[in-house]
Design a protein around this nucleic acid. Sequence first.
DNA 1: CCGAATCCACAACGATACTG
DNA 2: CAGTATCGTTGTGGATTCGG
Lengths: 126, 126
Amino acid sequence: MTKQFTGTPEEVADLRRADSLAREIFSEVANKWALLIIETLGERTLRFSELRDQVEGISHKMLTQNLRMLERNGLVERTVHPTVPPRVEYTLTEPGRALRATVDGMCAWTQRYLGHIEASRRGFDD
Amino acid sequence: MTKQFTGTPEEVADLRRADSLAREIFSEVANKWALLIIETLGERTLRFSELRDQVEGISHKMLTQNLRMLERNGLVERTVHPTVPPRVEYTLTEPGRALRATVDGMCAWTQRYLGHIEASRRGFDD
DNA sequence: CCGAATCCACAACGATACTG
DNA sequence: CAGTATCGTTGTGGATTCGG
C-alpha cells in the first residue's frame, strides 16, 4: 500500500510535475468521457451497447477508446462471452470503484452549486 | 441551497443527459488543466505568472482560457492591482474550494493506486 | 454485437506579435 | 506583467466500413 495523499506542497507538486507518473495518470483519467463512463457504470455491469446508449452523446469510437484506456489502467474489467452475437460486459474493478467515490463527489458538487454557477455566469456575461 | 446528490439513478441520469445544465457544467470543469489549476491554487492566492510556472506544461493561452472559464463559473476570483506593471491575483472562491476538496480525492486516489495501475499496464501491454 | 481501421473536417493548441 | 488576437499546425473525434 502506497503512502497516503495528505495534500502537502510536495505531493501537490508531484501532480503538477509533467514528467511524473502520477501526473500522467491523472491527466489521462481526468477527462469528461472517462469520468462519465465510470459514473455510469456505478455498481452495475453493462454491455458495450448499453453504455453507448446511457452515456448520452458519446460516439462508438470515444467509448471504445476510453474503455481500452480504463481497462489498461485496471479501472474496468472486460469480460467477453463467446456467444454469437458476441456479448461484452464491463464492470468497475476495486480501484475503479474507489475512483467512482470521488467522481460522485464531483457530481454532488455540480448539483450543490448549480445555482451559484448560473448566477455567476449571468453576472460575467454582462 | 439545492438538493443533495445522493447517487440515485435519476440523479446519475441527469449528468448523462447531454442537454442538462449539470452535465454541461460537469463537462466544462472536468478537464485536466482546470482541475490542475484548482489543485495548484489550493488555499493560496497566486499571480498569473506564478500559476504558469507552477502548473508545469501549461501554455500562456491555455492558462488564460481556463482561468476565464473558472472565473465565469465563479470558481476563482480575479483581483487586479492597478499598479505598473500590473499585478493580477487569483484565489479560489468558496465553490472553488469545495470542488478542490473532491479534486484532492482524485489526487489521493492516484497516489493510492499508482502501483496497481503500473502493474495493470504492464499486464495489458503484453 | 463488438471493435479496429480509414478518412477527413474542424477544434484545440502553441507560437508569435501586439496593446495597456 | 497580463491579456487579446492572429495564424499555422497538430491532433481529436465523428462517420463509415470492414472483419471477427
